[in-house]
């Protein structure tokens, strides 16, 4: 995991000026505010929740538990808690027909690539720290790096 992070960070640095993200106003107003989860910015969680409610909740449900046979759960799954690159790719490319913890999920998840890097980082940070999940935050720079690599 650490290696991946370092790799991503390097990629992000290499990205240079292109990294200058437009940040939501609320984020600018509450810099460096932390929640109980170490290293997870409260503003990101707040923005992430709003994005989740707007774009994700119908399928993944208010409790993040998904729907049997159709929409994957976001709890207790390596897809959410594990490799961030794979997780970002799911948002960028969509997903269908995977088995998670031995159960099939057949509904179509469309690409969410209309979300900008910060929005993706926020919603993934929210998901990784909600519904009983606890995992490190996703940074906009990390999303950016995966998006660039994804296009190649």
């Amino acid at each position: 995991m650490k290696k991946t992070l370092v790799g991503l960070a390097l990629l992000a640095l290499a990205g240079g000026p292109a990294l200058a993200q437009k940040k939501p106003a609320s984020k600018a107003k509450t810099p460096a505010k932390k929640t109980a989860t170490a290293g997870v910015p409260a503003a990101s969680l707040l923005q992430g929740k709003s994005i989740y409610t707007q774009y994700c909740l119908t399928c993944h449900q208010a409790d993040g538990g998904g729907v049997d046979g159709l929409n994957p759960p976001l709890t207790k799954t390596d897809y959410v808690l594990g490799d961030k690159t794979r997780l970002v790719r799911v948002l960028l490319n969509g997903l269908q027909g995977v088995d998670i913890n031995g159960e099939p999920y057949n509904n179509v998840m469309p690409s969410q690539d209309y979300l900008n890097d910060q929005q993706m980082a926020d919603v993934l940070t929210f998901v990784r720290n909600s519904f009983g999940n606890k995992a490190s935050a996703v940074k906009a720079s990390e999303v950016k790096a995966v998006r660039v690599a994804n296009k190649k």
Binding site: Y55, V108, M109, P110, S111, Y114
Partner: peptide, 14 residues
């Protein structure tokens, strides 16, 4: 094998 025969299945606005 589709929700509503969109060009991009279940994609907003498609």
């Amino acid at each position: 094998y589709s929700n509503s025969c969109q060009v991009k299945d279940r994609q907003k606005g498609s």
